[in-house]
Design a protein around this nucleic acid. Structure first.
Length: 228
DNA sequence: TGCCAGGCCGGGT
DNA sequence: ACCCGGCATGGC
């Protein structure tokens, strides 16, 4: 297997191995927003249970969720963990949605950079949650950085463990600036796929990882991270 | 049984 | 500008 040459190649290698991931799992843009908040530091399998509860209670729409108080929401999302905090965060997001836009459709019309700023000002919405909403709920071209992305990139020595969110995100925005959101969408999903499969443990050696040749680059060898 | 999972906030240095 | 404790369930 030849070494990975650049980030484009990096994606193709993963894609060939894992196939298209069809992210984000969710029926509506609003469901994606809710899932983005519920999955904070939480296994997705637990989020699914919470989403199922919300659906069963017919509470998975902006208007319906707006009717419920924090206590009622907390009871429904209990399986996703941190349910009191997350109930408050969901309320904060809904309030923001209605106050600023009145609905998801209007929010989608906002320009990427200003919308990101505003999302980050909502209590409980940090960079990953904001970017997940922008990309997966609204189809904006932005790269999501999460624990898997960081873990895989550190493992492949493309970033230092101390790299910040914005630094990592920039690695992807430079070479893929003009690419459609679908590229950002599946690329991030591929990181989750490879991370879950081969970087579970801190001591795992990624023996069968489709990107393994990258790990065995000689210390002088450097992979080009962008295409300039 | 303990450790971990698709973060973020608030208070303290 | 960092560092840290807190938040909580379910799966292995």
């Amino acid at each position: 297997m030849k070494p990975v040459a650049n980030l484009r190649d990096y994606y193709q290698r993963l894609r060939a191995h894992f196939g298209h991931q069809h992210w984000w799992p969710g029926d509506t843009p609003f469901e994606v927003c809710v899932g983005a908040i519920l999955t904070q530091n939480t296994a997705w399998s637990n989020v699914e249970k919470a989403i199922a509860n919300l659906k069963r209670a017919r509470a998975l729409s902006p208007r319906a969720l707006h009717q419920l108080n924090e206590h009622q929401i907390a009871a429904l999302i209990r399986p996703s963990g941190y349910f009191n905090i997350k109930a408050r965060r969901l309320k904060a997001f809904i309030e923001f949605l209605f106050a600023e836009y009145g609905g998801v459709t209007r929010m989608r019309r906002e320009r990427l950079t200003s919308l990101r700023e505003k999302l980050l000002s909502v209590n409980g919405v940090g960079p990953e949650t904001a970017d997940s909403i922008l990309l997966y709920a609204l189809g904006k071209p932005i790269f999501v950085v999460d624990a898997y992305t960081r873990r895989v990139l550190v493992r492949h020595r493309l970033i230092k463990p101390s790299a910040t969110y914005d630094e990592i995100q920039k690695l992807f925005h430079s070479p893929f600036r003009r690419h459609p959101p679908s590229l950002f969408n599946d690329f991030h999903a591929q990181f989750v796929a490879v991370g879950k499969t081969y970087c579970k443990s801190r001591v795992a050696l990624c023996e069968y990882c489709p990107l393994k040749p990258l790990l065995s680059l000689p210390s002088g060898g450097k992979m080009r991270i962008n295409n300039k």
